[in-house]
Design a protein around this nucleic acid. Structure first.
Lengths: 340, 340
DNA sequence: TAAATCTGTGCAATCGTTTTCGCAAAGCTA
DNA sequence: TAGCTTTGCGAAAACGATTGCACAGATTTA
């Protein structure tokens, strides 16, 4: 075991240099009250003694760790991992560490995660809610602790909280217009969980576009909670088998769109000539699959960076609330581009 | 500002309950020396006062935070994010938090990351080295602090340290055999940076398979440092243009394989009948691209879990060193499967 | 019945830093 | 030269939790 290893502290430095701990502490912080020579000596000694500041102790004294908690549903989704990449980069350049916790989309895990962050003494919380989350006591508890909270992507609907998300409504609206402009008339929509704002907004964008083109949303198939590859496949198969094959499948996820495409190809239906298919999120595979998938780029990394910037500003004392919509980008590929 | 918000401490609980802080502390820990009633009362009060333990303070006293630092090159690579997912899950079930730091493949960032972990007072370090890393003072410094280090995927070559990685040699060997069994004779190999053990091992596996089938490695094109999509494309294009089109491209990455495939398709060369292409890593896109890509599944999540388990055991005091090879899985798809 | 043990609690030191206050010596002003 | 400011540093009290030791009262043992 290594229990004999004691870390070097400023006290050690103080003793070998015949100085007081206060002087050493100040020297390390570059306090101008300490002479240049002393400061030099201290820093040199710190280096040669392998000293590194004990964060927790400093945190205890100052009441400020330099840690930000980040809670996401899953880390191994391209969208979230890119987003976290952006967060981490911004936080790091502001001398803040990033604590990660993934909920696996479970409400219980999310509660535990927030508690873990509370215990860890993080200075702020950045969170994207799990799909299951419909109660917010855990979040409110954190807020009561007086530290900033910034939501991203999946937010609590409370305008007194900061939130960075994409412009789902417009993205879906534009996508739908694109499909209609291609001459499609009989659409099907694969949507997500209605209690998440983002999925509601996408559906609303879809419906608004229909309305604006004189189509009654009630006349089209709208599926809820259908964003997995399997659901996309099954729903498409069922539509084909019951003779209700649409001429466009607009999906709120690349995964369900992928499922649809695989099914259509199996059935020998031509994409996009007979059926246009569109997705959402610009997953890595959507560019290279066959046919390449029309989708929406969400600029995940930017969302993360923006959210982290808001957090940093809050930490620094400017307690402003901000709701930011990051613009999306329509990426038109073969799965929806008809030759006419 | 919220500077007036003070967190509730065990002292607050003690005062409202007319108990001593020691009793409260013990009650919260479930110490059997405290009577059931008192313990009950304390826990109830803790709840109603929104109390949460101050980790840093406890860490200071006990010398044990519950934090593990994880340093990876990039978080938004499927491989690493899945791996981190595995780490996070195992650590969490052992009441350990996960600190994330990404180096962006930069040595300087890596040094800073290790320092940040040192300062944060993590109890252990899990790290996958950046491509640039060739010096190890920063790692050795951490080791000197007496806390466990576990490497994964990209390890320091020092048998006195724990490391979890995939069996690159065998994976490449099997892949090469598969290609040869398909009747390919004129191979090209796209490899990575030779100073990383993993890429060396893949190349060695490739060469050994050649030797075992009576082909001289010196007779085949072996490219170093060629694992991006662009490199794959460019090299392939050059081979075609100079009339050296091979009948198989064995690549140490799915990305370069993708580049090769795009180029071959553009040139109207049939895959796999004229040229077989294989990748490495089973990226999300490789299954759904056209043609689907033969590759190697690395079981990233398992690597992460295994590494985390070793870490947990070290934290608990069993300071055993372990080197683990996680077996890979050959995934044969259309890009290399000839009909004969 | 005296001694030993057990139960439930409190006191106070401690972890490594930061920071307020204070003080002596040196430099400056007039 | 008397008084004032600056410079450079130290003593000691925090921060919140843990824990070895002590101790009083109740219970058991011999």
């Amino acid at each position: 075991m290594n229990s004999d290893r004691r870390r070097t502290t400023i006290k050690d430095i103080a003793e070998t240099l015949h100085l007081s701990v206060s002087t050493v502490s100040r020297a390390l912080q570059g306090n101008p009250r300490i002479s240049k020579e002393t400061t030099e000596k201290v820093k040199k000694m710190a280096l040669s003694l392998d000293y590194s500041i004990h964060g927790p102790a400093a945190a205890l004294r100052t009441g400020q760790g330099n840690n930000i908690g980040v809670i996401v549903p899953r880390i191994n989704r391209q969208f979230f991992s890119s987003l976290i990449g952006g967060i981490e980069q911004v936080l790091r350049t502001n001398a803040l560490n990033t604590f990660i916790y993934q909920t696996q989309e479970s409400f219980e895990n999310e509660q535990q995660g927030v508690q873990a962050m509370l215990n860890a003494g993080v200075d702020g919380l950045m969170i994207s809610l799990s799909i299951e989350t419909q109660a917010f006591d855990h979040i409110e508890r954190f807020i009561r602790s007086g530290r900033p909270v910034v939501f991203f992507d999946r937010c609590m609907e409370d305008s007194s909280l900061s939130c960075v998300m994409i412009d789902d409504f417009n993205a879906a609206y534009q996508m739908t217009e694109h499909v209609l402009a291609n001459g499609c008339k009989k659409l099907v929509y694969l949507g997500g969980s209605e209690h998440l704002m983002m999925y509601r907004n996408r559906r609303k964008g879809f419906e608004q576009a229909l309305l604006d083109h004189h189509i009654q949303p009630s006349d089209v198939h709208i599926y809820e909670n259908s964003l997995t590859r399997e659901k996309g496949y099954d729903i498409t198969r069922q539509l084909i088998e019951t003779g209700q094959t649409p001429d466009a499948i607009v999906s709120a996820s690349d995964f369900s769109a992928l499922g649809s495409i695989l099914c259509l190809k199996e059935a020998g239906i031509n994409i996009p000539e007979q059926v246009c298919v569109t997705g959402f999120a610009n997953e890595l595979f959507s560019e290279v699959m066959d046919p390449s998938l029309t989708t929406v780029e969400q600029h995940a990394r930017e969302i993360g960076m923006k959210a982290a910037e808001i957090m940093v500003r809050n930490i620094k004392g400017f307690s402003e609330i901000e709701t930011v919509l990051i613009p999306t980008e329509l990426i038109i590929r073969k799965s929806s581009l008809r030759h006419r």
